[in-house]
Amino acid sequence: MKAAVDATKCNAYGTCADHCPSVFQLDEWGYGSVVGDGTVAEAEIGAAKVAAADCPEKAITLIDA
C-alpha cells in the first residue's frame, strides 16, 4: 500500500503524523507529507487508514500497490 498527501488540500492539522508517524511527517510549517515514497509497511496499514479517515481535509489517499 502507498500513501499520498494532496498538497492543495492539506491544511496543517497534523493529526496524520500523530496517528501514523512511520508514514506521515510534518514540515516546519505543520504541513503533512509522506516519508520516503509513501510505502506503508504491512503492520502500519491500520494506523495509516485511521490517519486517512481522520484527516479533516480528506487530503490523504491510500492506494493498494
Binding site: 498538497a7 492543495t8 492539506c10 491544511n11 496543517a12 514540515d27 510549517w29 504541513y31 507529507s33
Partner: peptide
C-alpha cells in the same frame, strides 16, 4: 497559492 507548503516555502 494552493499548497500550504508552496506558499510558506
Amino acid at each position: 497559492g494552493q499548497c500550504g507548503v508552496c506558499v510558506n516555502g
